[in-house]
Design a binder for these strands. Structure first.
Lengths: 144, 144
DNA sequence: TAGACTATTTATAAAGATTACAATTTGAGA
DNA sequence: TCTCAAATTGTAATCTTTATAAATAGTCTA
């Protein structure tokens, strides 16, 4: 499963002329293996023991490339760092306002919103973003 | 209209023990008068001629207070600065990916999404955020 | 397989947004 | 008016992300 996703991503990148480097491959591996919506720094720290000379800029460069190719989705949560999510099936995010945890949930794609928005504003619509904010089960316990 | 919104905001703040200062009032005035989704820096620059000694920190401090009281909504668009929107009626945002322009549009509130998300994840839901991204009419012209 | 070309990485500096902090000032109730 | 906590100011610091130039390394072609 994780391997299929990885292979597919590698193929997509190669097909559009992006070279495969060990660092790039490792970042993809990490993104397909983890479902933790990591920040750039999370990724950097997870890989620095395998690539002691790797630069933070490399992580950012690659995440930008992946985003441009539709391999990952970038999310800005508040003023903290961006988080990156490997794009698989269409899903939305539930975000805990206490601890920042992000959980995926499935919901039918909101095509209608896009159509209405396009009609009302005259914009050409590319995509949309929906996030639900609340308190996760763990933090609900801690409050009590 | 703008005055009613302003008065209401001032009352809400006073009622929860927030003091009214000239700077604070001016920021509220600006937010209710403009519908441009300004950044903290926009607000700072718009008011510095009236308050030559005002600090940027004051703008940030107040925007945080307003956000905590539900008076304004903070939006992060990419890696640029946050933008702030005076909360009036429930609406969503259409954002141009070329020039960053933000336009409001109305759509029935997505209560169902919140209910489904709560059920699937076990979170206690507070709110949600929906943004549609695309190209505004002006930028569509420029591309051609 | 070697050579060449260009993409990528690295290392570092720089930019930009936001926050922290301590001293000063000020709003509002008694 | 007095008092005290809240707010403001000015500045430094933090943190994320990008820019840049030199070095390195993929991949294509012969």
């Amino acid at each position: 499963m994780a391997n299929e996703m990885l292979d597919h991503a590698v193929r997509t990148l190669r097909d559009s002329g992006v070279r495969m480097t060990p660092q790039r491959h490792a970042i993809l591996e990490y993104l397909t293996a983890e479902h933790t919506h990591p920040t750039a720094d999370d990724i950097y720290r997870a890989l620095e023991h395998r690539f002691p000379n790797m630069s933070v800029a490399t992580v950012y460069n690659n995440l930008r490339v992946f985003r441009e190719k539709g391999i990952v989705e970038e999310m800005n949560y508040g003023d903290a760092s961006s988080r990156f999510d490997f794009v698989t099936t269409r899903h939305y995010h539930m975000i805990c306002e206490e601890c920042g945890k992000i959980v995926d949930f499935n919901y039918p794609v909101l095509d209608d919103v896009e159509a209405v928005a396009a009609h009302l504003t005259g914009f050409k619509v590319n995509r949309h973003r929906l996030e639900v904010y609340g308190t996760c089960p763990d933090c609900q316990k801690n409050v009590q």
